[in-house]
Each structure stands twice: as C-alpha cells, then as structure tokens.
Design a protein around this nucleic acid. Structure first.
Length: 463
RNA sequence: GGCCCGUUCGUCUAUCGGUUAGGACACCAGAUUUUCAUUCUGGUAAGAGGGGUUCGACUCCCCUACGGGCUACCA
C-alpha cells in the first residue's frame, strides 16, 4: 500500500482559524492512523496579503492542539524556480500560454458581461500569445492554463462525495503564474502535492469547484496515475442562520475564532484565543473532531490517540456543521474533570501548593473553564468582608466547639447546645466564610480553610 | 446569472429498504444535595415539499424549494 502522506497547507494571511485547525486535525488523524507523514506547507505565494507572524501563529496553534508536524514548514515562496520550471513544461506542450491583459481590461470585460470567463471561447478576442502570435515578453504578462477547446467531462472522485462531474467548458483559463513570477494556488498546489508525494488531499469544500482544474493539470503534467485522492470537507457554519463561520460571527456570538490570542499587526486589534479563554486543547480537539465526523458508535469522549484509532474518511459527513459553543464548553468541563494533574498545576499559582488540589476537588464539578476556579475559589485565599446576619449565641458557641471537634460535629454540637437548628445557620455561616450565598460544600470548604481561619472569619462577624 | 455541493430533533449526529427513527449538547421535570452547582432518573423534540421505483422508503431516482460554496494576477 502507498505511504500515507498528507499536508496541511494554510496561507499566512492572518491567524489560523478554528476551521483551519479542524482541517489540520483531519489530515493529522488520517496520517497517524496509517503511520503516515504530516507535512506543513506554507502557501505564501500572495506577497500582498502576507501577514508577519502568521506562520509562527499557525505553528504555535498546531503545537498547542497536539498536532505534530513531521515535515516542514515548507514555504512556497522559496520554491519559485521549481514552479517556473514546471509551468514552462506546460507552455512547451501547448497547455499554457502568455496573457497580457491588464487588470483594468479584465475588469471592464466583467463589468460589461457578468458571466465573462477567460476561456476557450473568449481567449482569441483577448490579448494573449494565442491571439497575438507576435507577442512581446518584455511587457508584463501572466501565464494562463489552456483549457482544451473541445468540452470534456472531468470526474472528481471525492472520498466524501463520490463522483462529482464537471464539464471542462466550465473551467476557465486560470492564471497559473502571476506577473510577479509567483505561482497561483493552483499551480503551486499541484506541483507541490506531486513533488511531495502527497497521497490524500484533505481540504475545505471551497476547493471543490477548482478540483477539475487541478485534475486537468495533473493530466497535462502526466501525473494522473499518481494523483492524490481528494476529500473535500464540509464547511463550518455560523451558529445562527447560515453561511461560513467568520470572525465576525464568532465575535457576535461571543466565542473565540482563533486557537490562540492574536493581535492583528495591521489593526492592532486583539482577538482572544481558545487557549486564553480557558479551553483545554483536548476539549477543542474532541469537539472539532465530532463536528463533521462521527465514529459510528455512541462514544463522545476521545483522546487524540482514540481519535486516531477510530478515524476514517468514510465517516465524514457531507453537510456543513453549525458551530455550537455550548457543546464545546461541555467538552471543556469534561476535560477539566479528567485532566486533574494539569489543572491542579494551574491552580498552584492562585491557591498555592497546599490548597491547589483540595480546591480542585471542591470546585471541579462547578466550573467550565480553568479560570473559573480563580473566581469561584477567591474566598479560599481572601477573607470576605461581607457582613452576615448572625446569631451571636450560636456563633460564639461554635467558636468553642471548633476547638475540640471536627467541623461537622462542631456545628452539630453548637446547634444542639444553643437550640439553633443547624439548617438555619448554614446560610449565615456560608456568607461568613465565603462572602456569598452559593458555593461548594461548606464542610469541605471549612476543611480547606482550616479551623484557624474559620474561627478568624467567625470572629470578624462578631465584632 | 452560470457551475458545483448539501438538506434527520433548536444544535452535532446514528440509520447504509422493514427500527416505538437511537445517542450527545441545550432545554424542561423529578430525585438526591441543610445553598447553588454536580450527579441520577425521566421528558419535550426530527426525516424540506412533490412525484416516482418497491410488497415496503429517512434510506434509491427525478423535480421543486431552501441553504451553502465557487465564479480574482486570494488562498
């Protein structure tokens, strides 16, 4: 069997977003499932949209998520001569040609005819090496793909959608190489996937319409027999209504769109990431894996290793999935409970070494995010200043019994001796100890606080 | 406009011709918890519409509707 080699190929035009992370995840799962190789390829062929820091952000995000890169990053911008060599091969074979039309000229065409397409029908009336055999290469030019004149059927055999048939007459003469000598996505993508011996191209559904162009390129390069298998993933949709999930939708619904916090170098705008918002990578991975894929069983919780084991492309769904942040939060809760050691480590900086673990035990069922521990457990390290309506007789007695008995017995004893029902005293006692009316089990709370501290807080109410 | 993809509870989904259409999140109710939360138990809730094919269709085919994607010298 052919070695499984996949690539995650983002373009560094901004921060990696959560949908991109899912694409990376599915690639990774497939690779690891078959002991294959995961390659990171940076598709930075658009010099105008390049955003500094984006590549580092992508790498850091993958690392946080637990997606391990075996090869790369490979930067396409550093491979210019390679693409040039291959596009010349196409030129020589008559499958590509030079075009000199300016942006303005093409815009005018589109304005005049909204259905305008640079293709076999229109190319002879445009300005290119086909229509003008005496062309002059000292002028700026692009190299365009020459779609065959006679219409043929191009079948994309998609692992998720089955056979999808396109007519080559719908494919236009796409630019393969831009006037700055950089390849476009289509050229670079096909050349690199071939050169890197990619076995499976797993990418977003937005690429499906250009898949026939890619197949034609493989064909004219003579690589069709080793062409990778394609799988076009359903899109991640915004939570309400329809449409592709965007940063704006996420902001509106109040959840992060990026794995990590990102400061846009152009606008200086800061967008909080999942990591900083308190999500555990395990939760995000589990959640993302199940958005569009399912194991066919009723298991919901998966570690990365379990995902690798259970994953299969066949079980990826076809329809777009709406992003439900509530479910992500539920996963987060689950993983907080499960990842005790990791969470306790976080808690040390807030509660100290001694208290970190007991605080975890007291609050673990009450929190959604790690940072919730800090807010909900504040009173463990800070004395509340709220005044409670206390029964002084009972509280004074409690001060005494606390010297001799464990907390539960001390309360019972003090209640019995003063004739106060303990039930009535729980609320004021809670306010006394925590400053609030809700919280974890009071006895447990007292144990964490310690008898000394409990007595001090009670005394505060009596003065 | 053209091309392509999609459509099961509010959401993520199971079902690969015969099921009381299952699970999870969310929601509601009850139980436990001398608070709240947790936990447990139970509940509400779905095959876009219309034609076929078939003994039988959520499942296969066609049409319609709706939604989405693409249609750049962006990826």
């Amino acid at each position: 069997m052919q070695e499984v080699r996949v690539r995650f190929a983002p373009s560094p035009t901004g921060a990696l977003h959560i949908g991109g992370l899912r694409t990376a995840l599915y690639n990774y799962l497939l690779a690891k499932k078959f002991g294959g190789t995961m390659i990171l390829r940076i598709e930075d062929t658009d010099q105008n949209r390049f955003v500094p820091g984006a590549e580092e952000f992508i790498i850091e995000s993958l690392k946080w998520a637990g997606i391990v890169i075996d090869e790369g990053p490979v930067r396409q911008s550093e491979r210019k001569p390679i693409y040039k060599e291959y596009v010349e091969q196409l030129l020589k074979a008559g499958h590509a040609y030079y075009a000199f039309d300016t942006t303005e000229e093409l815009e005018a065409q589109r304005k005049a005819n909204s259905a305008f397409q640079y293709d076999a029908k229109s190319r002879m009336s445009l300005n290119n090496s086909l229509s003008h055999p005496n062309f002059d290469l000292s002028k700026p030019y692009v190299i365009r793909f020459k779609v065959p004149e006679n219409s043929i059927e191009v079948v994309v055999n998609d692992l998720i959608r089955g056979e999808v048939t396109f007519s080559s007459s719908q494919v236009d003469d796409k630019v393969l190489m831009k006037s700055d000598g950089m390849p476009t996505y289509h050229l670079a993508n096909v050349v690199d996937d071939h050169l890197m011996k990619i076995s499976h191209v797993i990418r977003g559904e937005e690429w499906l319409p250009s898949a026939p162009l890619h197949i034609l390129l493989y064909r004219y390069f003579g690589w069709e027999d080793t062409m990778p298998r394609f799988a076009h993933l359903p899109l991640l949709l915004k939570p309400d209504g329809n449409g592709k999930l965007s940063k704006r939708d996420a902001d509106k619904a109040g959840f992060p769109i990026f794995p990590l916090t990102w400061k846009d170098p152009n606008t200086n705008e800061v967008a909080i990431g999942y990591r900083e918002a308190g999500y555990l990578p395990e939760a995000i991975i589990n959640f993302l894996a199940l958005l569009g894929w399912n194991p066919g069983t009723e298991q919901e919780l998966f570690s990365m290793d379990e995902l690798i084991d259970a994953f299969s492309i066949e079980r990826i769904g076809k329809a777009g999935a709406k992003f439900d942040i509530l479910k992500a939060q539920w996963f987060n809760q689950q993983y907080i409970k499960r990842n005790k050691a990791e969470v306790v480590e976080h808690l040390v900086k807030w509660f100290g070494k001694e208290k970190a673990e007991p605080v975890f035990e007291a609050l673990k069922d009450r929190v959604t995010f790690v940072k919730d521990f800090q807010e909900q457990g504040k009173f463990f390290i800070e004395r509340p200043t709220t005044k409670a309506e206390v029964n002084p007789v009972f509280f004074k007695k409690l001060l005494e019994t606390l010297n001799e008995f464990p907390f539960k017995e001390a309360i019972d004893k003090a209640g019995a001796e003063t004739g106060v029902k303990t039930g009535q005293m729980m609320k004021p006692l809670r306010i006394t100890l925590t400053g609030g009316t809700t919280g974890p089990d009071l006895i447990k709370t007292m144990e964490i606080l310690g008898a000394d501290e409990v007595q001090k807080r009670i005394q505060y109410q009596l003065v």
